[in-house]
């Protein structure tokens, strides 16, 4: 109720509301005498109310309607965001520093390209403490395919913990050397995992995420691996599928903004013939391709894995190589360097 914000007494607010004046705009063109008669108050009091209303409603004072922000405010807010690193400097470089919070990022590629590996890496990396230029958050991992391998997570977490303590500036922050910042087990504890077995469960879970995250405010990333799996089968009514998917996409968008967390959706891909050439395209069709803020496509280039930014409002379309190693996602060490090392 807009009139609730006016700096006037509660009785007057009550009178305004019971007389049907709830918005400031309804007061804007009234004369004091009319208002005084409607509310049975003195004309001076009515004049004060109208003055407050016109000040409160003037566009110069509050350019934004509830919940809106100006671009200037957002620009400064954006600078404060920390991005979630992918552990590959090349990948971070094309992503402008990593996976960004408040946005929905879709990562897609053919089986075996490393989608799940990136998902696990991000679930681990989001927990890097603030001291180490991380977010110190928790992760929600929604597993629809059954590909979340906890042994592998432990492996990646170990590598991450080792790397972290190696790079940590102990002398400055006063931690005795040799003490590990985070145990690999801590990483596992901070990953909230859901196994989803049907698309109904998936929709139900996405709907209840709001409540879950309200209770776990530290959650900084939601990973769905994969968004596609249950929607690619058992669907006769394609129009219904489109509707469900776009509704789910909006919910995830809202979540990303509300809790300023990153949403990462993993998607399957297929080769498709367009205009005579073989094109790699992600599943779920044309209308789904609008559902994310950023879209990254993973592909093979010879024997090397590459990531390509297919869609982004602020980043250039570029590609970078990466590698999946035993310790997780890393920069690709080129062949010539590898030869030297040997």
């Amino acid at each position: 109720m807009e009139v609730g914000r006016l700096p006037i007494s509660a009785t007057q607010k009550g009178k305004l509301i019971s007389a049907g004046y709830t918005s400031l705009s309804s007061l804007s063109s009234l004369s004091p005498s009319l208002l005084s008669r409607d509310l049975s108050i003195t004309e001076t009091e009515a004049l004060v109310i109208i003055k407050h209303a016109s000040r409160g409603g003037s566009p110069s004072r509050s350019p934004a309607i509830n919940g809106a922000q100006t671009a200037w405010e957002m620009l400064h807010e954006e600078e404060l965001f920390t991005r979630i690193t992918t552990s590959s400097a090349d990948l971070d470089n094309i992503l402008g520093g990593g996976i960004s919070c408040k946005e929905v990022t879709e990562i897609g590629g053919i089986p075996g390209i490393g989608k799940t590996q990136i998902g696990i890496q991000l679930a681990v990396n989001v927990q890097i403490p603030v001291d180490c230029r991380g977010l110190g958050g928790k992760a929600i991992y929604i597993d629809t395919e059954g590909s979340f391998m906890v042994e592998r997570v432990l492996q990646i977490a170990k590598a991450c913990a080792e790397e972290m303590s190696a790079n940590y500036d102990f002398s400055r922050n006063g931690l005795p050397s040799g003490q590990v910042l985070m145990q690999p087990q801590d990483f596992l504890e901070n990953i909230i995992c859901y196994r989803v077995c049907s698309y109904t469960e998936q929709i139900a879970l996405v709907n209840s995420l709001d409540k879950i995250i309200c209770a776990h405010r530290e959650v900084k990333i939601v990973i769905i691996d994969s968004i596609t799996f249950h929607f690619r089968q058992d669907f006769d009514d394609m129009a219904l599928r489109t509707r469900l998917l776009s509704g789910m996409a909006l919910k995830l968008m809202k979540l990303a903004k509300k809790f300023s967390l990153a949403v990462v959706l993993l998607n399957q891909a297929a080769n498709k013939y367009t205009e005579g050439s073989l094109q790699l395209s992600l599943a779920l069709g044309d209308s789904w391709s609008h559902a994310c803020t950023n879209r990254i496509i993973l592909y093979w280039n010879g024997n090397e894995r590459y990531a390509y930014i297919d869609k982004s409002p602020s980043l250039r379309s570029r590609s970078a190589p990466y590698a999946v190693t035993s310790s997780g996602i890393r920069n690709l060490v080129s062949d010539s360097k590898r030869m030297k090392m040997m």
């Binding site: 934004a64 809106a68 919910k251």
Partner: peptide, 28 residues
């Protein structure tokens, strides 16, 4: 930058409410 105002809208009902409010503001 201050003359660009961004609204986050995730459903049609919020959009309609926002457009109505915009109309009132614009009228005044």
């Amino acid at each position: 930058m201050n003359s660009i105002v961004c609204h986050r809208v995730y459903d049609i009902f919020t959009l309609l409410a926002m457009l109505h409010e915009l109309e009132f503001r614009r009228k005044s």
